[in-house]
């Protein structure tokens, strides 16, 4: 059962990711990315990380993609060339990606050690966040604050 769902979500994720990259209409790119995020959320459920899935949906689908949609709706993007123009740009991009995949394949696949797929409890995560990782947690709070100030400063008209 979960095998079928794994393949459904995987195909959805890959197809929508390709659609993000290859679609000429930016709005459709945004919507494809939302579909892609939902299929990744499905994978999180399959891995038993229900809480992570909910946070993923709230953060990505609920906040980040709404921002993207806002920006794309408000800008007139009709006359922007969507793709690089020269054929060797595509060639170089393809070669770079191929080299990267080769590097990943030789390096990652040897050291990959998957954890046992099982139900993930909320309590250990929360405890880890507030004890072991308390300093990074506080630092990310400061990061958020500085981002808020920075965005307000950037957004003000001159």
């Amino acid at each position: 059962m979960s095998d079928i769902f794994f393949w459904v979500f995987s195909v959805m994720a890959v197809v929508s990711a390709l659609s993000v990259v290859l679609n000429r209409n930016p709005i459709y790119s945004v919507l494809s990315l939302i579909v892609c995020f939902f299929s990744i959320a499905g994978h999180y459920v399959l891995m038993g990380a229900l809480f992570l899935c909910a946070v993923h949906i709230v953060v990505y689908a609920g906040a980040i993609m709404v921002l993207f949609l806002f920006v794309i709706m408000l800008m007139n993007l009709k006359d922007v060339p969507e793709f690089v123009s020269k054929w060797w740009h595509f060639g170089a991009a393809g070669a770079a990606v191929a080299a990267m995949v080769f590097g990943l394949a030789t390096h990652l696949f040897q050291s990959y050690n998957p954890r046992v797929i099982g139900d993930m409890q909320l309590k250990p995560i929360a405890q880890a966040l507030f004890t072991t990782y308390a300093v990074p947690f506080e630092l990310s709070a400061i990061l958020f604050l500085s981002a808020v100030i920075g965005v307000v400063a950037l957004g003000k008209s001159e």
């Binding site: 229900l50 909910a54 949906i57 609920g62 709404v66 806002f70």
Partner: peptide
């Protein structure tokens, strides 16, 4: 009975924005 039911509801609230945004645009 989702163990994250409250977050599920909150996610749906933010998901509801898309219907309005896409339709209006």
């Amino acid at each position: 009975d989702l163990s994250v039911g409250l977050l599920y509801l909150f996610g749906l609230v933010s998901f509801g924005v898309y219907g309005v945004m896409i339709g209006g645009w």
